[in-house]
Design a protein around this nucleic acid. Structure first.
Length: 419
RNA sequence: GGCAGGUUGUCCGAGCGGCCAAUGGAAACGGACUGUAAAUCCGUCGCGAGAGCUACGAAGGUUCGAAUCCUUCACCUGCCA
């Protein structure tokens, strides 16, 4: 599959695009320059951003010039959400997050060599513009009539709390980026998530008005599971790319647990597997679902992409040891230590009640919940179901004298390390 | 500016002086089952071992007793200026 656009479509990475024929032609003519922006709304990128990073990666490999933008200015304003106004973050915090995200993005693209990706910050060209110049030079090109049609803005205009002028201006600020990158680097394509369509086209329009040039954009689809729920949440928490926010173990487990009905779709999106490999995986889901081969490939590939091969090997070994059929007490101390090192946990004294241990390790939210879980038969210690809420951690419960494995339900594990 | 209505647990949404930690639905979690999948059925779903404590926009008040009544404040909605 040589055509990049064909490949992206086959992978399910294209939702909506400006004139597809023109875009295909532009891509076929030779390397073009494209960009995708990431706003610093948190100290780490997350699942949704990973889709964009994967897209950029495909483009760079296909020989196109990739610009990765971190939104030092747009992050100060905030893209309006359809539901409610954002609370402004301080400039210091935003700058800190920009720095973190700039680092986080590095492994996904090649920033060295002939076709090095470019890392830019829109604050560099936005900060120097005066309010008056902004209104005269940029604002004049935007019709409010058109701006209010944008989905998130329209929703907010309908909502009880309305929308601040600050957030209303967001799309102009983002459009300005496209113009700037077009001028400075000949950038003619912007990509983004499905919810960014309005912002992307605002940029396309601005470049067209000011420079008379036709540029392009396309969005990736919102990824949902069979029930139509967004992917990227685990136990109600976002799946982050930062190891300090979502541990590599938790990250790997997230992918391992993907439902059968979605695993093929996610393999296409997030891995570099070929159509043949994916067809084989699909076949295995159908024929031998209990082996979870597709999920294992998905989890391994994506974890390697985000955390590296070494981390993947570690969490695979841990998962194997902890979820394997083998008796936990039979594990050798080294394997046990490595496996449990990946788990969330707590340092606990001999004699700590299991109720307290379940709370301390974060497996449940409260002592009540712990008792409930034990009462429901949903908790186990070293793979032995707990029945007595009053039971306490005994000396012999610490396997190899160091760690006890607590489990809630089928798949939530934690380590109680001997203090 | 005037008048009327609203603000309930993660979300939606009942309750309108005691039987209300608060009906119902969704989400979520656990069990039964396989496969660390889905579907289905059952259960759980503020904190606390318990007594009890904290919760129904905020602050006061009435009452033996308030999510429910009164006052003030904030925000929203509708009608009239």
């Amino acid at each position: 599959m040589t055509d990049i656009f064909d490949e992206l479509q086959w992978r399910g990475l294209v939702a909506q695009s400006t004139d597809e024929a023109a875009l295909r032609e532009a891509l076929a003519e030779g390397p073009l320059t494209l960009y995708c922006g990431f706003d610093p709304t948190a100290p780490s990128l997350h699942f949704g951003n990973l889709v964009q990073l994967v897209v950029l990666r495909h483009f760079q490999r296909a020989g196109h010039r990739v610009i990765c933008l971190v939104g030092g200015s747009t992050g100060l304003i905030g893209d309006p959400r359809p539901t409610s106004e954002r609370v402004l973050k301080t400039k210091e915090q935003t700058a800190d997050w920009v720095a973190r995200i700039q680092e986080q993005v590095r492994p996904f693209l090649d920033f060295e060599g002939d076709n090095a990706a470019l890392l830019v910050n829109n604050l560099d060209w936005t900060a120097p513009i005066s309010a008056l110049d902004f209104l005269r030079d940029i604002g004049k090109h935007f019709r409010v009539n058109h701006m209010v049609r944008k989905e998130a803005v329209a929703a907010r205009l309908e909502s009880e709390q309305g929308i601040s002028y600050t957030e209303f201006s967001y799309q102009i600020l983002q459009a300005l980026d496209f113009l700037e990158l077009y001028r400075a680097h000949g950038c003619t394509l912007q990509t983004g998530g499905a919810d960014q369509w309005g912002n992307l086209t605002a940029g396309v329009d601005l470049v067209h008005r000011v420079e008379g040039a036709s540029v392009h954009c396309f969005t990736t689809p919102l990824l949902t599971d069979a029930a139509g729920t967004k992917f990227g949440k685990s136990e109600g928490n976002a799946v982050w790319l930062g190891a300090d926010m979502t541990s590599p173990y938790a990250f790997y487990q997230y992918w391992i647990n993907v439902e059968d009905a979605s695993v093929v779709k996610l393999l296409k999106v997030f891995t570099d597997r070929t159509p043949e490999e994916i067809a084989a995986a699909e076949e295995q889901v159908a024929q031998e679902p209990f082996r979870r081969t597709a999920q294992r490939i998905l989890a391994a590939d994506v974890t390697t992409l985000v955390h590296g091969a070494e981390a993947t090997a570690a969490v695979q070994a841990a998962s194997e040891a902890l979820f394997g059929r083998g008796d936990l007490t039979a594990l050798d101390p080294a394997t046990l230590g490595d496996a449990t090192a990946e788990l969330p946990g707590a340092d606990l004294e001999v004699g700590t009640s299991l109720v307290d241990a379940l709370v301390a390790t974060g497996l449940v939210d409260s002592r009540n919940a712990a008792r409930r879980t034990i009462g429901e038969g949903g908790a186990s210690l070293n793979n032995v179901k707990l029945t007595d809420p009053e039971q306490a951690l005994g000396e012999h419960d610490f396997l190899a004298g160091q760690v006890a494995v607590l489990k809630r339900g089928r798949r939530n594990l934690a380590a109680a390390r001997k203090a």
